[in-house]
Nucleic acid binder design. Sequence first.
DNA 1: TATTGATTGTTTTTT
DNA 2: ACAATCAATA
Length: 822
Amino acid sequence: MDPLAKVLNPPQLEAVRHGEGPLLILAGAGSGKTRVLTHRIAHLLREGLARAPEILAVTFTNKAAGELRERVRKLVGASDAERMWVATFHAAGARLLRREAEALGLTRSFAIYDDGDQLAEVKRAASDLGFDAGTAKAHLSRIDKWKNAGLLPAEIELPEYDVPGKTALKVYAKYQAALQSSNALDFGDLIVRVVELFKKRDDILQNYAQRFRYILVDEFQDTNPAQYQLLRLLSSVHGNLCVVGDDDQSIYRWRGAEVDNILDFARHFPGTRTVRLEQNYRSTGRILAAAHSIIEKNERRAEKKLWTAAGDGDKLRVVVAEDERDEGARIASELYAQNARGTAYSEMAIFYRANAQSRSLEDALRARRIPYRVVRGRSFYDRAEVKDIAAYLRLCVNPRADGDLLRIINTPPRGIGDTTVDKLRASAIRQGLSLWESLEDPELPSNVRSKLLPFKALIEKLRSGVSASAADAIELVIEGTGYADRLRLEGEEGEERLENLMELVGAAREFDRAWNGEDPVTTAPEPAPPPKERPLVPNPLTQTHGQYMRAVRAPGALGSASLTDDAPGLKPDMSAALAAADRDEADTPLLGFLEQLALVGDADAEGGGDRAALMTLHAAKGLEFDAVWMTGLEERVFPSGRALGQTGPTASGAEDPAELAEERRLCYVGMTRARKKLTLTLARCRSLFGELRFNQPSRFVRELSPDLTEGLGALERLAERPQWGAQKTDDDFDQRPRYPGDPPTMRNKMRFSRDEPASKPPMKEAAPGVDRVGSGSRVRHPTFGVGTVEGVDGVGPARKLEVRFGPGVGLKRVLARFVDKA
DNA sequence: TATTGATTGTTTTTT
DNA sequence: ACAATCAATA
């Protein structure tokens, strides 16, 4: 019998063994799709259906790409794994475009603009055209939509009456031209411009379409039309396109994702074999049944129903809280109780619809001293100081980058104000040159030139001083531009920014090392922490959270760590993996690091230690936890007020069925994250946008069957109570009529502290949060190793510690959030 | 050029 | 509530 049959169930096996032709794998939540993808890739190689370089596997997140790459590597070995393309859509696009840049009139060192750069550029485009720059956001959202749809300006036709559309289109054309002359691309371009390239140059398309004999796509339900076009083109020669996804988990419609891509796949690719993965290996029967009862109300979906061989499990629970503070307090005490019963905090998660909801939850957890981490976007790399430094570096590498030049020409302030900049821009436009080239335009007034020339000299000095090393380059910029000096003058906040830049240097240092295939430094004077068969490497990307991972080194390859089934909690080393993928495309570690800065956030950073996770429902996709709390199950919160036509600019009073279907999918995604325990909470009233609101319980809880759920009784009691109009203050709140069984008022709460135990629960040893690190503690810093705290300044994770590290490092001031308890 | 007061719009944000 | 952004001001 095929040994594969031991690790795969029949439909999984069918998907893995499918040979040529289009393949659609409808993979329900927790049905083992990554396993299928990895085994399928291994199968293709083993059966000689493809050689490694002929395989292209695309995902949406860096995390997914890293995980896939790693798991494939474990199956097929490092040398094959390195020769295939396993990347995010955007990384693959960037890689391809760097190779073919000339064909689009770009150079290999084009810059990748992020949202902020994009908005700035759109503003300039709009104001150059004489439009109000205040409308830039609206234009940008149209531009993004066009790009998601795969439409470049020339291909867009608008009806005469669409006046705002016409304006946006003009801005789009101008914006696109500005990017082109800046030798820059935005995220959307990383896809659309590949499509453009393929349409324009059939020879190049043929080259890639021939090469990629087998293409595999993860999370296909999230593809936008541009990505879909790209896949169509790339698979046009061999037709071996395998897509994996779950239409029920499509939650990015608002970003241009098109569920129809997956729903109509079989129709668009004749001869498609469809495989359904419906056996769930994650959740209990009740959780699956409840999730199904929510999702089955959606009309257009690929019929499938998850089942599990595991038991029914506990009932879901609904908790009705008084307000958001009460909601937080109850959840916090439940977390505490769960933990006392043996569930690690790291196995618990709290989800919310909108980031704004995290505040009250965090307050409650902090009050209870429950260790947590908030999973957010790319917060670290989005800091202004990091982006400033990146702009300097990009300008050094790519002088045509007008956006980067404008960003830093007066940062730190060097007397180059708006008027000077305007004159420079006018000159550049007049002569059709880049800003950089115009810096010494002899026609500029001498007072303007006298300001610009020193700036030019500064950049030239940097450019000649910048070496291959990313870390050295960053240090040179920080010190050489006066940026550091400026921050040092700014006190408290400047200090912190400087610390952040030091972290950036640390990340770059690690990246350099990985690039050069050197062993990562272990500064720790004592034996490296957990004795694994390999040394532990700080992940440069995730080091802000002090995470450590196992280094696995392939011969002659870059370091990359493994995400293994046997090592839960260890995540792949993204930067090293990215370094490996792009090494032949980028020439130096500096260029590689810049690429990483653009394409990889620190979002994937998993906080070390035993902490509960807080995140939006969107951020939860792809994750799983033993116990999950979904919060804010109230109409206008979840489903969001926008889907109900109640909030925002599109507020029409009418529900938007498409939006509501997406909210439903979001609910489905959230519920299917839970392995064993699922709790849904709502608050009777909640302050939202500054006013106190009494929201109806969400339809998603009202729809739950009592067979599956406990605590529904509270909903009915709630319905019997009269509703009050909006009440603005706590005083009003306290003077509401009292009903038997009502929780105490706010004021009472302060006195009696209903939910808070009289004495604070003692901190558990298992929670190595940074909060209790003080003088004398031994701490571990990802860059500096292990040291002893000698001083503390401030409170919370943002406080600074003076730490005495080992020899060669000495006394350093570091942010508490960057260290872990040693 | 930096500071201020008013105004604005607040879902989600893989890259 | 609240932050972020912008126009007017010193």
